[in-house]
Design a protein around this nucleic acid. Structure first.
Lengths: 221, 221
DNA sequence: GAAAGGTTGTCACATAAGTTACAGTCAAAA
DNA sequence: TTTTGACTGTAACTTATGTGACAACCTTTC
């Protein structure tokens, strides 16, 4: 199977950090791989689906979403190309996606044979190290996320979120999904922060004049 | 530094699964390591502390606890020897413990030089694979945990907890800490389950006559 | 420019969980 | 046995968040 992959593009991904172009190129020539396209709103992967390949987001932007039987949903993270999509599943005991992956815009996904990749990784110390760093950092990030859900109020979580996403143009509905709360609940807390003078609303967009004010709210007043 | 380490004991740990005794022995002879003892209630590690060694719980039982400024706390997990204590920190970008580790009984911790261990891991494919499996599985577990905190009611989480811990003799206060809620709130939900006939209380201990009944509650009625 | 569809603010109400307090019960220690 | 301390049930009250609904507004499309 041969597709025209831009090595330069791929090299930007943390998985291939400090891997030479030559190596990457020769690996791709050797390993079976394919490039799949998806339209906006398509499900790239459904929660619970089996996975026995390495998925790399080659272009575009996707959401990782957890859905619960009763309809509630949580947007766990947003991924932008180029980045590995579920590195955990390569080595874990379970091989089912814990989240659904949904295209937020037209998207291309590079699917690479798992066994070939494993072998390559065992030969290339740098690649292995990249991989270990990625999933280790991910674990730390997940642990902190648990802490925020279990121990922090919505106001703290919103402050935290805005502090790190002050520039992004997300709607309040979207932010609500990322924080796992109902939209009116979020709106209420947003109004609260406006009254406190921490944020302002301009043309329906949340503006943060002074991020330091948010910081004081992030760990409890 | 030489301490009398029982190789048999250590071999039971998932990190050293399918590693031969000989190898383990010769590694320990080569690598600097030490064995530290802690009493019940001691802090083995404080949240935020730096870590540049491999910590292996050699004997005893510890809790991993997250504490928040306002006093709320969450017992993230309970670890029983022999098991690696913070495998994430070996390869991640951050090197600070995201949780405190507290001894639940007298405990011994084996502290091994990180660089030696890394080198060993790069030489031994089996060890590397064990390690990858452990942190991958951990990520899946953390992801599911986030889902339960963000999307599930306390009743669902309690049902889930009891389903997997029906035999353990934990007090309600302890369970409350594991679920990250106030003790009276948990007591209320426990009473609710008793009324529903799903569990019963015998001598202050929660008894689960029929785990299948719990299962139906785990994912929302 | 009108229509359609999505986004926001807000309200009234319902439910879930936190807080504080206190009394009853059990179990270990003296 | 008595005492002490920890654990439990529960009550009254507060606070946080969810639910459903609606009108106002903005943006895109026709």
């Amino acid at each position: 199977m041969n597709t025209q992959i831009d090595i330069q593009q791929l090299k930007q991904s943390p998985v291939f950090q400090d891997i030479s172009e030559k190596q990457l190129e020769s690996f791709l020539e050797d390993a079976p791989h394919s490039l799949k396209s998806y339209d906006k709103h398509d499900f790239v992967v459904m929660q619970g689906e089996r996975c026995r390949s390495l998925y790399i987001l080659y272009s575009g932007k996707v959401q990782a979403v957890m859905t619960h039987p009763d309809g509630k949903e949580l947007v766990v993270e947003v991924l932008e190309a180029p980045v590995a999509m579920a590195p955990i599943l390569l080595f874990g005991t379970k091989d089912k996606f814990p989240v659904s992956i949904i295209a937020m815009e037209p998207v291309e996904v590079l699917i690479i044979n798992k066994d070939k990749f494993l072998r390559w990784m065992q030969e290339d110390a740098q690649l292995m190290q990249n991989f270990l760093r990625i999933i280790s950092d991910r674990s730390v990030w997940l642990t902190e996320k648990i802490s925020s859900f279990a121990l922090q109020s919505l106001e703290m979580r919103l402050a935290h979120y805005l502090y790190f996403h002050s520039d992004s143009p997300e709607s309040q509905s979207d932010i609500a999904k990322r924080l796992g709360v109902a939209r009116p609940s979020l709106s209420r807390v947003v109004s609260g922060l406006v009254e406190k003078g921490v944020i302002l609303i301009e043309k329906r967009k949340i503006v943060v004049p002074d991020p330091d004010k948010l910081k004081t709210l992030m760990h409890g007043d």
